[in-house]
Computed example of a mutant assay.
Amino acid sequence: MAHRLNPVGLDFVASAPVRLVFTREVSAPPEAVYAALADDVTGWPQWFAAVTLCRPTGGGTGREVRLKGGTRFQESILAADGPERYVYRVDRTNAPGLRALVEEWRLSPTAGGTGPGTRVQWTFAMDGAAVLRVALKLGRAGLGRAFRDAVTTLDERLASRAG
């Protein structure tokens, strides 16, 4: 059964008890990466392997997300500041022990590259039961690998569309 999480705001990204930050550079320009994140919400399963469904709700003010294994999220978009930042908060989930979760995607042009590349930074900010906080810290490497694989696949997808 889904339960409601704490309705935290943008400041939670910096103040969360658990903050995992991952960064990767890609060759696609920030505008293309942002469009894939914020505008092509239904395309997420094509590049983020853990995502089986992602669709906008509330006229674009929210999202419904389903992950492999059955985890479900109802989310609210907290910031859509293209092409620099996309932030959403989980409002309801069936994941046990979770009290608050915000994910922030920050995009910035890469410096010194041969093209218009992007530095993608993903912050996973959460609060939950002690056992969940410990498990997430221990699972950091796996979450980082999922992020790297997803962003790499997204970059390949964007390159094939541009070419």
Score class of each variant (00 low, 15 high):
residue 83 P to L: 12
residue 129 A to G: 08
residue 141 A to V: 03
residue 125 A to Q: 01
residue 51 V to Y: 01
residue 79 A to S: 12
residue 50 A to H: 15
residue 58 G to N: 03
residue 15 S to N: 12
residue 77 I to Y: 09
residue 71 T to A: 12
residue 61 T to G: 09
residue 114 T to Q: 15
residue 69 G to R: 13
residue 122 W to R: 10
residue 126 M to S: 05
residue 67 L to I: 13
residue 17 P to H: 01
residue 159 A to L: 14
residue 125 A to C: 03
residue 28 A to D: 04
residue 125 A to I: 04
residue 109 P to I: 10
residue 129 A to N: 09
residue 112 G to P: 06
residue 22 F to H: 10
residue 112 G to K: 07
residue 17 P to D: 00
residue 67 L to C: 07
residue 89 R to M: 12
residue 22 F to A: 08
residue 30 P to Q: 02
residue 66 R to K: 11
residue 22 F to K: 13
residue 88 Y to L: 11
residue 72 R to Y: 11
residue 99 R to M: 06
residue 107 L to N: 05
residue 13 V to E: 02
residue 116 P to D: 15
residue 148 R to H: 05
residue 147 F to M: 04
residue 144 G to A: 09
residue 45 P to V: 00
residue 91 D to M: 03
residue 106 R to F: 02
residue 30 P to V: 05
residue 75 E to L: 04
residue 159 A to Y: 13
residue 88 Y to C: 07
residue 61 T to C: 06
residue 12 F to G: 01
residue 1 M to D: 05
residue 82 G to Q: 02
residue 99 R to A: 06
residue 28 A to S: 12
residue 54 C to V: 06
residue 47 W to F: 06
residue 77 I to W: 08
residue 155 D to I: 07
residue 98 L to P: 00
residue 106 R to G: 03
residue 111 A to D: 07
residue 17 P to W: 00
residue 98 L to A: 02
residue 26 V to N: 09
residue 68 K to F: 06
residue 14 A to H: 08
